[in-house]
Design a protein around this nucleic acid. Structure first.
Lengths: 226, 226
DNA sequence: ACAAAAGTGTTTAACCTACACCCATGA
DNA sequence: TCATGGGTGTAGGTTAAACACTTTTGT
């Protein structure tokens, strides 16, 4: 039967924060994420997703932004709710965790690392606290999925970028090489890129710099207000 | 800064329950859903999504199933988490609502209606309590989206059905007519249908009955437990 | 015989993939 | 001039839309 009063359940927000570690000579670019070492039970000493309790007068997304900033010092370029986890047995006390996932642009402020925070390759994680391995896998699945039908990759890049930069993001997310010729045609015909009149000069033929058409939404972010 | 104790937030589950009202001579099939009339403040007297508080020892999905059964007397053929709504101002007291959406097969037990429960056309709703219009719109968007890439339509149909039955479901969800010839080829080539050796006889040429290949998942339902 | 739904065939266009090829620059 | 990534062209395969056509039943 329907209850008329609510039992004690605590509400937390955790966030899977993805960033891009650019490639170097002998290493492809990869997707990385920050984890926090737990300083108390349960799972003391294990790595866990950044997060915290939801404040009484704080929206869920605001909690995600706040804890993200506390962990990385960054503001996200993309933030979307992932899933609400609330199984009875996922923690010794009853906790419902609203999990978000976010993209942050690569930024050197990351090197100013905080104590108890480390960045890991998203596809090569140690055993994490709670069900956090499971959660990261799902977030990665969502990221890979979304890159196929939205402009989400932009969230990893600075304002100006070359097509090779953008292709590198796609390749890191999808874990496979893409044909440069076909990739160019696809993004050009999508109407989301605005060519600038500047070029990046380097060791070979200069590449044109592009920027994103801000008129085009990055992605559908769920049931947004209005 | 990070809190170490959690404030008082109540956790509820609501569910958008879709069913199919079959077409008749002069009327196309349509998607319908049950609403409950609120008997207390806030929004007393308004129609609202079925739901209830999460029990201390009850998983979120179990709460959805329980409240769904209390409202309709049915078990869902499909059940998936939709979104967690938790804005501070969505209710006078702080409530985080984990919203599910479900499909139920049409069933005459629906006619044994309970007091304070009524079925509405999903595309023609009155103003609902809280942000529930917004939530239903999002659930409809998800349903329409999902029908394009998964076998979700099966959740509305009985075990045996004709291709015209299935097409009728698609047309009701998408709100437009589909070419019978092309529709047949698409579902046949998907490998999700098993032809039986029985036919439905009617006023014209008998139509073959099909059933679903249970080996094929209806849809990806999110981060399911392993 | 005729109407209407079941079911098949065919044309066209759009798209994706693979890969050959040319272009522009630094070393 | 050579290596290399930037950028263009093009042929083949797959898919989907549109629609003409045949089949099978009830009346």
């Amino acid at each position: 039967m329907t209850r008329t009063s609510a039992p004690d359940i605590r509400v937390a927000v955790s966030t899977v924060i993805f960033s891009l570690r650019p490639g170097a000579e002998s290493r492809d670019a990869s997707i990385v994420l920050p984890l926090v070492r737990r300083t108390r039970e349960p799972h003391e000493g294990r790595w866990a997703l950044p997060g915290g309790w939801v404040d009484a007068d704080e929206n869920l997304e605001a909690t995600a932004s706040r804890t993200l900033a506390e962990t990385t010092g960054l503001a996200p370029s993309y933030l979307e709710q992932l899933y609400a986890f609330g199984d009875v047995d996922r923690s010794p006390t009853r906790v419902v965790s609203i999990v978000y996932w976010a993209l942050v642009r690569e930024d050197l402020s990351r090197t100013a690392e905080q104590h108890n925070v480390e960045w890991f390759d998203a596809t090569d994680l140690p055993p994490l606290a709670f069900d956090h391995n499971h959660i990261v896998d799902y977030a990665l699945w969502r990221l890979r999925n979304k890159v196929g039908y939205s402009r989400i990759a932009h969230g990893f890049l600075p304002e100006d970028f070359t097509l090779a930069d953008l292709r590198e993001v796609y390749e890191a997310i999808l874990g496979r090489r893409l044909d440069p010729a076909n990739f160019r045609r696809q993004v050009e015909s999508s109407g989301t890129l605005i060519p600038t009149d500047r070029f990046r000069t380097g060791s070979h033929r200069p590449a044109r710099l592009y920027r994103y058409n801000q008129d085009v939404e990055l992605a559908d972010r769920g049931p947004l207000p209005q």
